[in-house]
């Protein structure tokens, strides 16, 4: 089989998974619409905090309310896209701990796409919709900025997804760590939703390496603010690098996996 044919075959498989996944996620349209609307409202309420903050203070190390709106929009898009398309990554740690990987390992395909695309969380649509409101109305961006915003935000989604895969793989090495994986997810979410320009050099170093929140929040916002191609390319490069790292970590963890993983969890 030629490389081109193999790639086409793989893309068809992912497209089929996506189709089934999204059909499942939208199977209850009323619930999906309510979830999305609530998430939309949820993001707006969160923005209120910053409206109150900037009613009292003129700036936060050079950032104003519009920059915060850009940040919230980018993070909302990244998070919404990730959970809407690949909601299964939220369950990865539990699946590993419960021995649920067996089902996926029996298939003649790489198990990761099947795992990630096993669930769609419809509230993600609300996140994605709110992004446009944050960017175009509250963030002061123009229609011309949209291609750059969508590019860096989608790259940020890949970094977010990859980081979640890595943290959700913890149960491969550390039995009983599914709860810890969830806390690490909450930590990442917490960091990316707050402006990272306030931190000093050392913290920023961590955010650009070990815990790559800077590629999800800080760098995409700076790329849009400065219309900087270099910064945008930095986010895209991070998406490729962290995506590859996530696959590598998952495959390394898979070597340690035994279907009786549950026994290790209960020990």
């Amino acid at each position: 089989m030629s490389a081109r044919h193999r790639l086409w075959n793989h893309l068809s498989y992912v497209a089929a998974l996506l189709r089934v996944n999204l059909a499942g996620g939208l199977a209850r349209p009323l619930f999906a619409a309510t979830s999305a609307a609530m998430m939309f409202a949820n993001n707006l309420i969160l923005f209120l905090l910053w409206v109150i903050y900037f009613a009292d203070f003129s700036s936060l190390r050079g950032w104003g309310l519009q920059d915060l709106a850009l940040l919230l929009g980018i993070v909302a898009w990244a998070f919404g896209l990730t959970v809407f398309l690949a909601g299964g990554l939220r369950d990865l740690a539990t699946t590993i701990a419960d021995g649920g990987l067996d089902v996926h390992l029996g298939r003649p395909r790489h198990p990761l796409p099947g795992l990630l695309l096993s669930r769609s969380i419809p509230s993600g649509l609300g996140d994605m919709a709110s992004a446009f409101l944050f960017w175009l109305w509250l963030g002061g961006a123009g229609i011309g900025d949209l291609p750059l915003l969508l590019a860096v935000s989608t790259a940020a989604a890949i970094v977010l997804g990859a980081t979640l895969v890595i943290t959700q793989c913890l149960p491969f090495w550390l039995p009983g760590s599914a709860a810890l994986s969830e806390e690490l997810f909450n930590m990442l979410l917490l960091i990316v939703f707050y402006p990272q320009n306030a931190y000093g050099f050392l913290v920023r170093l961590v955010l650009f390496t070990v815990f790559p929140a800077a590629y999800i929040g800080l760098l995409p916002v700076e790329a849009v603010r400065d219309h900087s191609l270099i910064q945008a390319l930095g986010v895209l490069a991070a998406a490729v690098a962290y995506g590859a790292l996530a696959v590598w970590v998952f495959e390394r963890g898979l070597r340690r996996y035994a279907s009786g993983n549950r026994i290790l969890e209960l020990r």
Partner: peptide, 13 residues
């Protein structure tokens, strides 16, 4: 969960 998100954010604000 959607009700919880709203309650949680109202708690924050």
């Amino acid at each position: 969960a959607p009700l919880f998100w709203i309650w949680q954010k109202l708690t924050f604000v």
